[in-house]
Amino acid sequence: MAISEKDVKHVAWLARLALTDEEVQKFTQQLDVILEHAGKIAELDVENVPPTSHAIPIRNVFREDEVGVCLAPEEALLNAPKKENQSFVVPRIV
């Protein structure tokens, strides 16, 4: 196995996903297959190949430091489940 149920639970917690025991089992098996497939790369010598983060060789896409138009606050808050004082309301943090 390339991944354990414990790993899956940990990753689920990091992503704030509540998984049932059945789901943990199911995803452990599926992720194992995926990781095994991705693991094939370890069979190759990639010593001199730089890690690829982007498939297309584009560099330096920048913008000028200019101020544009922003959303009106009521638009920004349109989908907020709760609002107060023109702000998003979030439940207690600690």
Binding site: V61, F62, R63, E64, V67, C70, A76, F88
Partner: peptide, 30 residues
């Protein structure tokens, strides 16, 4: 391209990018 001005009224300087709305794309300020 939202303004960085300090001390403005809450949520007056936001857009889909800095609100993290789906489909928005960041472009770096040179």
């Amino acid at each position: 391209a939202c303004s960085t001005r300090f001390g403005e009224e809450p949520n007056t300087q936001t857009c889909p990018v800095c609100l993290g709305l789906p489909g928005s794309l960041p472009v770096a300020n040179e």
